[in-house]
Design a protein around this nucleic acid. Sequence first.
DNA 1: ATAAACTTTCATTTATTTTTGAAAGTTTAA
DNA 2: TTAAACTTTCAAAAATAAATGAAAGTTTAT
Lengths: 167, 167
Amino acid sequence: MEFKEAKNKFVQTWGALGSQWGINKTMAQIHALLMVSSEAVSMEDIMEELQISRGNASMNIRALMDWGIVYKEYKVGERREFFTAEKDLDELAVKISKERSKREIKPALKVLKEVSSINANATSEEKHFVDQTKKLYDFVLKADNVLDKITEYKDNWLAQILVKFMK
Amino acid sequence: MEFKEAKNKFVQTWGALGSQWGINKTMAQIHALLMVSSEAVSMEDIMEELQISRGNASMNIRALMDWGIVYKEYKVGERREFFTAEKDLDELAVKISKERSKREIKPALKVLKEVSSINANATSEEKHFVDQTKKLYDFVLKADNVLDKITEYKDNWLAQILVKFMK
DNA sequence: ATAAACTTTCATTTATTTTTGAAAGTTTAA
DNA sequence: TTAAACTTTCAAAAATAAATGAAAGTTTAT
């Protein structure tokens, strides 16, 4: 397989993955393209490489910047804007996770808290509902913090040594 | 808020969450409904509660069973089938994570390995591509195993005590 | 064997999401 | 200030995904 083919395959695959994870295909493809480009890329080039319209490119680049995983760059003597992606993968994971937490998990937690606080006066049906949604609340809350925990743990060399030692 | 309203709100919220995470809305709603039902529920009742067609119900229940998070149940003297959801949340998380890994992560890893193995003969552009996709491969591979690691860690009381102690 | 009770399938319809592209907006150089 | 070079917006179109429902399939009781 030669370079161009490999690059294309990577972009397509990353795009498909993105669309299964709630990020739209083009957005993920642009991100993929930028991640493997050593140089910053212009909008024109993105349109050309992905065969997409100006509007589509513009909107999805904007979205990526809102997520904080793509940056604008200026070149001297160039009027156009260029774009680069966050290439540090730990940083990328943290940003994506924070953003999804904010947009999706936090609102869901709010609802879970609400519905688990109803007055379960009588039936076992209602008791079960309250019980189960409370458990869900705790679980989602914990899961939501998992990435922070992992980051902490990664920086904690003593914990790492101890856990390795025990295995 | 009274029970019926709370239940409905929960089902809607869980459904929306599902659709942001690559699971379709109805599938997530059925799962939500079953999770908070103390009794097994018939297809007829699912159709009624969610206001969906027979075909839709059938196909999504089937999908949930394929994921291993919904089970069929039979009642004596009843010809109809009833359904229940996996209610243990750790178990649920493990099953979902395994299934998504199998369906999405593993194929992506395969491609990442492929494209990072091209002969980067010359340009710095090609070198950067190979370098970045290799990093991605390692990263995704590690991330893919995170849940297993957490499960291990949860069962390891000594690790837990030690890490708590250090904080 | 038959028919009632139930479930599954899948071509078609409906709903949702994404993309387009032309017009409006912005910035910069002269 | 003007106009060229560029970016953003958004209504409409296209593409994609999900839902319907009637027909086909299956199971069970008699």
